[in-house]
Nucleic acid binder design. Structure first.
Length: 313
RNA sequence: GCCGAGAUAGCUCAGUUGGUAGAGCGAAGGACUGAAAAUCCUUGCGUCCCCGGUUCAAUUCCGGGUCUCGGCA
């Protein structure tokens, strides 16, 4: 079917296990679109089952971007994502197709919509490591005190024992010679720019979401999750890949810390907590158009509903 | 049937020398802008099994009951 587009870029976001991928696939298929990942883990090549990457059939039916584009050994982060995602959607647009971003990483969506400050310098792993070491040795509050002196605006927004953010803020100051808070004021993103952007948030009742997520974890085990994670042991995982849900839990099992059942329970629990955090993130995002998916509705029906909304406005 | 032990937050339990109670886990809410599937913050009135008794006051002591778990038959 041919629909006249009223948007240049579409986002399909929502919590884990809500059914984003299937809806995005249907939507892209009927609007001549291409899918771009908006997910922090689906970019990793070696993690197929654990990140619930779209099937080969789905990828053959509609062109997908950024899925499995980097190795788990590489450091990946929001900055790199933004660079890759921007060139991907420009590529899609240049071929007259509709970019459909799909994923559950709220921050990656925010980074595209609102931007991120542009760093002139290369990240310095040694500097990060030095800050890590100092934090481990002398405690978080010691670094926090330093941040208060250097960048009181950022310090006011960061909790005294939020290791990750304290280190990040100090790292930026050391690297750029300017404070994180001042740099963050200079961000420019897609929102409010020359593109028409529509954000669709897919949702289901919490209990249904949890049940679907639990079932999906069972499926992952059946598909060979343990083998997939076991294979990663040969590699040197980057910090970002090593903390993905599934890796620590299965590694614990492989080391004999507990049985398989326990690792599955942990993965299910951690997935539920992750879903909760996603919901918290998206809840305060006022730009989203909420799409509640009724129980039993097919992805094609949801996609048709969204396509209609796109055509109307 | 007898003898023990127990019954307290969703779960596992602690505790109150009698002044209506608190840990862990789970759960919920929140923050979030280059690790984000990350990192971090906040939140526990619950017929203290039921009915009586003693007492100014009982979840705590006493008696009876119900149920659960051991052991013995």
């Amino acid at each position: 079917m041919k629909t006249s587009l009223s948007s240049d870029i579409v986002f399909i976001v929502g919590p884990s296990a809500v059914g984003k991928s299937a809806v995005a696939l249907e939507l892209a298929a009927c609007l001549q679109g291409e899918i771009i990942s908006c997910d922090a883990l689906q970019v990793y090549r070696e993690i197929r089952i654990a990140s619930d990457r779209p099937s080969a059939a789905a990828m053959a039916a509609v062109r997908h971007h950024l899925f499995g584009c980097v190795s788990v050994e590489e450091l990946f982060n929001a900055g790199r994502y933004r660079t890759l995602a921007c060139s991907a959607f420009e590529d899609v647009l240049s071929r007259g197709r509709l970019p459909v971003f799909c994923g559950g990483s709220g921050m990656y969506m925010a980074v595209l919509l609102d931007g991120i400050f542009e760093s002139s310098r290369q990240p310095d792993p040694a500097l990060r490591q030095a800050l890590e070491d100092e934090c481990a040795r002398r405690g978080c509050s010691c670094l926090y005190d330093r941040l208060c002196a250097v960048d009181p605006v950022s310090a006011a927004k960061i909790k005294t024992n939020d290791r990750q953010r304290i280190i990040r803020a100090l790292e930026i100051f050391a690297l750029e010679g300017r404070t994180l808070s001042s740099l963050q004021g200079e961000r420019v993103g897609l929102w409010g720019g020359r593109y028409r952007v529509r954000l669709f948030f897919l949702d289901r009742p919490r209990e249904e979401l949890y049940a679907r997520a639990d079932a999906r974890v069972e499926d992952m085990f059946a598909l060979g999750l343990v083998e997939e994670i076991k294979a990663l042991q040969e590699l040197k995982l980057s910090a970002s890949a090593a903390k993905m849900i599934g890796v620590p839990e299965i590694t614990g099992f492989l080391c004999g810390a507990y049985d398989l059942q326990r690792s599955r329970d942990l993965i299910q629990r951690n997935t539920r907590r992750y879903i909760k955090r996603q919901l918290t993130w998206f809840r305060r995002e006022a730009r989203l158009e909420h799409i509640g998916i009724p129980c039993g509705q097919s992805p094609a029906q949801t996609a048709a509903f969204i396509a209609q909304r796109l055509a109307e406005v």
